[in-house]
Design a protein around this nucleic acid. Structure first.
Lengths: 224, 224
DNA sequence: ATAAATTAATTCATCGTTTAATTATTTGCA
DNA sequence: TGCAAATAATTAAACGATGAATTAATTTAT
C-alpha cells in the first residue's frame, strides 16, 4: 500500500528563500498575479513568473499544469476572493443611492488598498482585452455586485435620476474601472492626471456626479 | 553609369489579386492597420499581416525593414492623416463651448465613419497599452487638438463650469476615447451597451454632461 | 527506502528577421 | 523595333530567439 494512497501535503522545502509559512502554491500565485498585473497576461512568460518566484518554470507545470490553468487558479484563489469585501460593503448599505455610492467608494478603496495589483489587471484585461479573463471576471465576479446595484438603483432609475438605458453591469464596470484608472491603471490617465492635485477618488466623484445628475434618456433616434 | 543612378518607381505587378490602382505599399499598410486594430500591435504577427495582404512576410521587410518601421509608416501615412478632419471641424467652430462640442461630435463621427479601424486601435493602444504608439499618438497627433480645445474651453474654465484640475489633453483623450468606446472599442462596452438603445454619441453626451455640469474642484487634501 | 518536490534538459511551435533564388519589368543598344 | 543585360519586385527557405509544455533525472523529507 505504500503511503496508503493519500498524498502528503507539499512540505516547505528547506532551501526556499524566505521561509515564510504560506506554501509554495500561494507564493507562485502571487508571483503570477504580479507579473500578470504589471505586464499583462498574454505578455508574461512562465519563465518570468518562475524567475520572480525564485523557481524553475517546470514548477508551474507541476502545480498548475499549463498557463490556462495557472490563470484560472489566480482568478479563483486570488482575484475573486479579493472582490468579496466590496460586495460586503454594498450589502451593508441601505437602499438610499447616496449611501450606496458611499459604500461603493469605501469598498473600492478597501479592495484597492489591500490588493494593489487589482487596478492594472482590471484596467488592462477587463476594460481593454477581450480574452477569457474578461468573461470570467465579468460574468462570474461582478454579477453579484450588479444585481445588488440594480436592485438598489432601481428606485433612482424609476425617478428618472439615472439613465434608464444604462445597463447596471455597465454601472459597475464604469465605476470600478474609472475608480481604478487614476490609481495605477492606463498610463494615459496617469499622465493626464496630476496625481498631487487629484486623489484616487476624483474620477469616481466625476462619474458619480454624472450618474447622479441624471442625464436623462438618450436623445438619439430611439427605435421603439 | 548604367541606369543613370536613378531607380525606376515600383510598378504594379501583373499577378496582384485585385488589380486596383493603389500601389502595394498602401495595400500592406491597410492590412497591417486592420490586424493591429483587431488584434493589437504586440499580438499581431508579420505573417498574419502578410497573409491578409495576400503576400509573403518578406515583402514587409522589403518595403518597411522591420516591424517598428512598419508601425511607424502606419502611423504616419494612415493614422495621423485620418485625424485631420477632426481638427478641421474644430477650427471651424467658434469660441462657444456648445458649438465646440457639437463640432467635436460631428468631427469624431466623420472620422469614425470613414476610418472604422480607428476605435479599437485607439482604445486598445492609446487608452490601455503603454507602448510607443501611445507616445506617438498622444504627443504628435493630439497636441494640435488639445491646444485648440484649451483655448476654446478657457472661458468655460474661468466660469468654473469645467474642473480646473482637468488637463486639457485629458479632455480630448476622454472625449475621443469615450466617444469611440461604444462604436467598436473595448468588448466590455460593446456588451454592456445596448447598441440599439444607445447611439454612438450617447457616451459622449454623458461625458459632456459631466464636464459641462462643473463638478467643481476636488475635495481632496489639496497640498497648496 | 520511498514518494513527494524540484530541477535540468529537451521538444515543438511561432515570431522577427535575413539570405538567396526566382520572376517580372525596365532599359540600353543594335 | 527587337533583344539581351540590368534592376526591381517577389518568393521560398531558413536562422536565431523565445515561449509553452514535457520528460527524465535529482534532491529532499519522512
Amino acid at each position: 500500500m505504500a503511503t496508503s494512497g493519500k498524498r502528503a501535503k507539499p512540505q516547505r522545502r528547506a532551501g526556499r528563500p524566505s521561509g515564510d509559512e504560506k506554501d509554495l502554491r500561494r507564493h507562485l500565485l502571487d508571483a503570477a498575479l504580479g507579473q500578470f498585473a504589471r505586464t499583462g497576461i498574454a505578455a508574461t512568460s512562465l519563465r518570468a513568473i518562475a524567475t520572480e518566484a525564485g523557481v524553475t518554470p517546470a514548477m508551474l507545470h507541476y502545480y498548475f499544469g499549463d498557463k490556462a490553468r495557472l490563470l484560472q487558479a489566480v482568478i479563483d484563489e486570488r482575484l475573486l476572493p479579493s472582490l468579496a469585501p466590496l460586495r460586503a460593503q454594498l450589502e451593508l448599505a441601505g437602499n438610499d443611492p447616496a449611501a450606496l455610492t458611499e459604500a461603493f467608494v469605501r469598498g473600492i478603496s478597501d479592495v484597492v488598498a489591500s490588493h494593489p495589483w487589482l487596478p492594472p489587471l482590471w484596467v488592462r484585461e477587463v476594460l481593454c482585452e477581450g480574452g477569457a479573463l474578461r468573461e470570467i471576471l465579468f460574468d462570474r465576479a461582478v454579477p453579484g455586485v450588479p444585481q445588488l446595484l440594480a436592485q438598489r438603483f432601481a428606485a433612482a432609475q424609476a425617478n428618472g435620476r439615472l439613465n434608464a438605458a444604462l445597463d447596471p453591469r455597465l454601472l459597475v464596470v464604469s465605476l470600478v474601472g474609472l475608480t481604478l484608472f487614476p490609481a495605477a491603471g492606463a498610463p494615459i490617465w496617469r499622465r493626464a492626471f496630476d496625481a498631487e492635485a487629484l486623489g484616487p477618488g476624483a474620477m469616481l466623484e466625476h462619474t458619480l456626479a454624472l450618474l447622479g445628475q441624471g442625464v436623462g434618456t438618450t436623445k438619439r433616434g430611439e427605435p421603439a
